[in-house]
């Protein structure tokens, strides 16, 4: 099988939710080619994830499929990323993400992280229960393009406003876009606390960050 066929297999396997075949194709590409082949494989994963995301947004695919495709991509990227030249996999910009203080839920955030990495972003994942200062410090230290906050619980949504206020206080608000998402939140809330965008799901969130990256 030539490299074009292997790339096709990689993409089709991911879209067919066949982890074994996707990993095998990625391994063949990594073993047989140089830097260009690995970069092509990363691009194929990114394209496939784009298709998965579109299918999810269009209501053709569902959460289990979105999550499992993300898991396949994670396995494949685990093989490919160490072979890439430094910085090549993270060209689209840096996004800092985390679940706000007091909240330990991370499913939506983790889906975003998988798909954002697949799309070429460097993701600084702060995890869950993240205090205000850690969000702000990470945004400053990484010169982040965007800061994403996830919040499942209404009881912790007040943390989002605190982070935005602290970004403003430290003069960072103009340089970093803020996006929020999670079961507790609404578009109305996002506007109310001064976020730049609300993400009803991880894929819509990624689309927004891609637009910011391109502008």
């Amino acid at each position: 099988m030539n490299s074009d066929e292997q790339l096709g297999t990689l993409k089709e396997s991911l879209l067919g939710l066949d982890m074994e075949s996707a990993v095998e194709a990625a391994r063949s590409l990594a073993d047989g080619g140089g830097q260009a082949a690995v970069q092509d494989a990363v691009s194929a994963v990114s394209e496939a994830l784009g298709v998965v995301g579109k299918r999810f947004q269009d209501g053709e695919w569902f959460l289990t499929e979105l999550v499992y495709a993300g898991e396949i991509a994670k396995e494949v990227m685990g093989l490919l990323t160490p072979l890439l030249e430094a910085g090549a996999a993270e060209a689209a910009g840096t996004v800092v993400v985390g679940t706000v203080a007091g909240d330990l839920h991370d499913l939506g955030k983790n889906i975003f992280v998988s798909y954002a990495r697949g799309a070429g972003f460097k993701v600084v994942d702060l995890g869950v229960d993240v205090p205000v200062d850690r969000f702000v410090d990470a945004a400053r230290e990484s010169s982040a393009l965007a800061l994403g906050m996830s919040c499942l619980l209404t009881s912790t949504e007040g943390e989002i406003g605190k982070v935005i206020a602290e970004l403003e206080r430290q003069g960072l608000r103009e340089s970093v876009k803020v996006i929020v998402g999670g079961a507790a939140l609404t578009e109305q809330f996002a506007r109310h606390v001064g976020a730049d965008a609300f993400a009803p799901d991880a894929i819509t969130g990624l689309d927004t960050v891609k637009k910011w990256s391109a502008s």
Partner: peptide, 12 residues
């Protein structure tokens, strides 16, 4: 369900 639709494909 989740915020935008069922958690799994309805057929599943």
């Amino acid at each position: 369900g989740q915020k935008t639709g069922p958690m799994m494909r309805p057929e599943l």
